[in-house]
């Protein structure tokens, strides 16, 4: 197997008495498309914040892109990309201004930003849109651009939060092809989603429930193991809480 780019050992995160992440251990490899699933409040967001250097673990060892999440969160931030469907780009800036802004934030040199932007415009067939405001673009284009901007600095890992929600089936497939292409270049793609058919595209998935990882395998193996037709069925079998539902905000 490939190199390990995310290594989590006995990760615990507590807020007061509440254990949001209860002894998580897993590894993610370079070039892997990894799906991180769980019901609302299962602890996904907490773990994601730790993996992206925004929050520190209470205990345990978390290494992301070769850096320790406890000691070097700033280095982690430089080596990852992040995209969520709705809020990734600045709507009142143009396409080019967005690439300039993100390239600048990630410390890329101006010539490099210009070169990558030009390549990107050509690859996406966006040349006529370079100076258009994001708010004037159709959703499908925004989404492809948001992903491209998230990997503009060629990060080791890109985190995608519900990447394809709401787009038409053709755009959705073009988007997954972009993800496959990035993965084939060695970029690790870490996907969190509520939508189990997005999970079917992943190489491996983990399912969280009540702060713990309760399943981790390829979609095909999990379907076999739980005797289910779809990942959605697997998820419902695993994640349906036996205890009364918690009303707390989360997700």
């Amino acid at each position: 197997m490939n190199d390990i780019v995310i290594s989590v050992r006995n990760l615990v995160k507590k807020f007061g008495d509440f254990v949001a992440n209860d002894n998580l251990s897993f590894e993610v490899y370079s070039g892997e498309i990894f799906g991180f699933l769980g019901a609302n409040g299962a602890g996904k967001t907490t773990a994601l914040r730790i993996l992206s250097g925004l929050s520190s673990p209470t205990s345990g060892e978390v290494m992301v892109a070769g850096y320790d999440a406890k000691k070097e969160p700033e280095k982690i931030k430089k080596n990852i990309g992040y995209m969520c469907q709705k809020f990734s780009l600045y709507e009142d800036l143009t396409v080019k201004e967005n690439t300039m802004l993100y390239g600048g934030i990630y410390g890329m040199s101006l010539p490099l930003i210009k070169k990558r932007t030009a390549e990107l415009m050509e690859k996406l067939n966006f040349s006529d849109y370079e100076n258009k405001l994001i708010s004037d673009l159709p959703l499908g284009m925004k989404q492809k651009l948001a992903f491209s901007v998230a990997v503009l600095h060629e990060p080791k890992i890109v985190f995608l939060d519900e990447p394809t929600g709401g787009v038409d089936p053709v755009t959705r497939r073009q988007f997954w092809e972009m993800i496959y292409e990035a993965a084939s270049r060695g970029i690790t793609v870490f996907v969190t989603t509520h939508y189990m058919d997005e999970a079917e595209y992943c190489d491996r998935i983990s399912i969280m429930s009540d702060g713990k990882i309760v399943a981790l395998d390829t979609p095909a193996n999990l379907k076999k193991q739980y005797n289910a037709e779809t990942v959605e069925e697997v998820f419902i079998k695993i994640a349906r809480p036996d205890s009364p539902p918690s009303p707390l905000k989360g997700g």
């Binding site: 769980g38 019901a39 609302n40 929600g165 709401g166 509520h194 939508y195 189990m196 959605e232 998820f235 419902i236 994640a239 349906r240 809480p241 997700g251």
Partner: peptide, 8 residues
């Protein structure tokens, strides 16, 4: 939209 699979 935006609701987890169990709630859906």
């Amino acid at each position: 939209t935006g609701v987890d699979a169990v709630s859906r």
